[in-house]
Write a protein that binds this DNA or RNA. Structure first.
Length: 140
DNA sequence: GCCAACGTTGGC
DNA sequence: GCCAACGTTGGC
């Protein structure tokens, strides 16, 4: 199983919006960046991800699961090559993990979130996954 | 194919 | 509101 991070402006699409989609989940559409799209193409069903809020209070707020592999983005023109996976909410983090606290943690200095803050869909290393989960109050 | 100009993202 | 980082566009 691989781990990922999905970024969203909560005013556009929030964790609460993701939860509201229920177990069926929904497409992570609207991504128009090749690197982010390629990460989604590399995902398989069952992969886990962090749901991250960008903006005024940047933080990891929840866990999601990939429920459908990359397929054409319904919001993109046909045959335009923009694909996206579908995600469902798994659980909120008992304590959201702020970007500030991630940057303050030496073990997380290599996270893509720290090194390339603009990439909206990112890979997460297993040890980074465990560390952020622990910081968020989730038992291993 | 190079690179300057421009637009967008996102933290602060 | 500012600015750094990054991606895209377009002239050459």
């Amino acid at each position: 199983m691989a781990f990922w991070l999905f970024k969203s402006e909560p005013h556009v699409f929030s964790w609460a919006d993701q939860v509201a989609l229920g177990d069926a989940g929904g497409p992570w559409d609207g991504v128009r960046n090749h690197a982010a799209r390629n990460h989604m193409r590399a995902m398989t069903v069952g992969d886990r991800g962090f749901f991250y809020h960008s903006g005024a209070q940047p933080a990891v707020v929840g866990l999601v699961e990939v429920v459908a592999p990359a397929a054409p983005d319904p919001t993109a023109p046909p045959d335009s090559g923009w694909d996206c996976v579908s995600l469902r909410a798994l659980a909120p983090l008992p304590r959201p993990v702020s970007l500030r606290s991630i940057k303050a943690e030496p073990a997380l200095a290599e996270m893509v979130l720290v090194r390339n803050s603009r990439l909206s869909v990112q890979p997460v290393r297993p040890e980074e996954w465990e560390r952020v989960c622990a910081m968020g109050g989730l038992a291993p």
